[in-house]
Design a protein around this nucleic acid. Sequence first.
DNA 1: TATTGTTATACTCTATAACTATA
DNA 2: TATAGTTATAGAGTATAACAATA
Lengths: 150, 150
Amino acid sequence: MIDLFDSNLRRLTGYQLRRATSASTHGVNKVLSRFELRRSTYSSLSVIINQPGLNQRQLAHTLAIERPNLVKIIDVLERKQLVKRKLSNADRRAYALHPTTKGCELYQQATDAMITEDATLTRGMSDKEKIMLARLLQLIENNATQHKAK
Amino acid sequence: MIDLFDSNLRRLTGYQLRRATSASTHGVNKVLSRFELRRSTYSSLSVIINQPGLNQRQLAHTLAIERPNLVKIIDVLERKQLVKRKLSNADRRAYALHPTTKGCELYQQATDAMITEDATLTRGMSDKEKIMLARLLQLIENNATQHKAK
DNA sequence: TATTGTTATACTCTATAACTATA
DNA sequence: TATAGTTATAGAGTATAACAATA
């Protein structure tokens, strides 16, 4: 096959980002499917375990997703008995989100597999490069978020 | 607001990538909407201008998208008279994709705006860091694509 | 009045199977 | 038989408006 190239697009950092992200998606989905999780449910479970008791608004903010999109994600996690919505005493409008024992166990297994999978992405990088990459990606996110707010 | 953090997730390169990409999306969409383009139509137009005469299979491969998803994108570009499907003499199954004059002009304007927008993402980076970022993102994409093929 | 969770809805991107016409 | 373009379809993520219960 003739190997064409998108040399114009490749000059854009935003496009480079999108291609790298997109390429990584297949492997991530494949790993998570072994645990009957999707990216949205895994990331929500992760934050809930990291910050037990937070409410849906806080979780949505942490994940940078909209509140309405979270409802079905938590529904799924609750149906699978990985997470529980507990009524908050302080504010009866809100639910405090807590992981179950089953949720913690599944999270540990899934995370082990995710870390292994994730390591394939940075194969060939030195530790110094990995640290720099993380720093630059965070800078981009901050730049974009600040830019968006204006 | 209490500033919670997703420290578990943030250790994963794949998640760092996704957050940076996602954060950049709003600005890109906003720029492209001024030209009545979307990411999919802009990137297709870009490749067609870069490689005039290529067919839809080649374009899909270059953009790493599936052939069926390209059909409506080209339909839109053709309806807007930015691109033309020309019957290929060599292979009457295939269309050769060519930009129109209008397509080239709109692409130039949109690209100027896109480059300006894109520069905000790498604000605060040295030239050396920008080069390294591009190299590391390409490495990730290669690693992920290779990993996927297995 | 404002906020939490929710419902409804719509749009974009992505992915696969199967068809047609050509090769 | 294999390929290019297409159709149909379904899944996942994302975004906004509006509502009930509560603050």
